[in-house]
């Protein structure tokens, strides 16, 4: 698992370093250190450290077993991704209510009344806090809220 994550970071670091070498100048037109100076140092150091750590990880060969609760974390991540996706199409208030209803139905099972109450009251409170009290921007949907 960690080796896979390190490989992903190494890949991204490779792309970053390649761009730093290919597209950015080491010196500016005035002859001073240019925009590539810092990214090249960072990129190369990142690649070396990732490759070193990946090598050590593969040589160690230790395999971690995922937690039995990985489904709960995955479900919350999926629901929060869907919530972000729904923010602008549905509007802040409706997206919050829909997300919370779905999340509570999954995590707080068989407490239908409690879940329904929370799914209505909490989004309303947060909407009033941000939109009305603080005057901050909350996405407006087709219904205007």
């Amino acid at each position: 698992m960690r080796a896979g994550f390190l490989a992903g970071v190494l890949l991204l670091a490779g792309g970053y370093t390649w761009l730093a070498f290919a597209e950015l100048a080491w010196l500016s037109s005035a002859g001073r250190l240019g925009p590539a100076f810092f990214p090249r140092i960072i990129g190369v150091a990142l690649m070396v450290l990732c490759a070193w750590s990946l090598g050590a990880e593969l040589a160690g060969g230790a395999r971690e077993r995922p937690s039995v609760h990985w489904r709960a974390a995955a479900a919350l991540a999926l629901l929060s991704g869907l919530f972000v996706a729904a923010l602008e199409p549905l509007g802040g208030l409706l997206a919050m209510a829909a997300y919370l209803a779905a999340a509570l139905a999954y995590f707080n099972r068989r407490r239908h009344w409690q879940n329904a109450l929370l799914a209505v009251l909490l989004p309303l409170a947060i909407y009033l806090l941000f939109r009305v009290w603080l005057g901050a921007s909350v996405p407006r949907g087709p219904l205007g809220f």
Binding site: L100, F107, L122, L134, S137
Partner: peptide, 22 residues
């Protein structure tokens, strides 16, 4: 199980409200 979904709600709306940026 109640706290986690509620905190995600505040995080998401809070982030959007800073610059109104999706």
């Amino acid at each position: 199980r109640l706290l986690a979904p509620a905190v995600i709600l505040v995080c998401t709306i809070g982030t959007y409200s800073v610059n109104g940026s999706i």
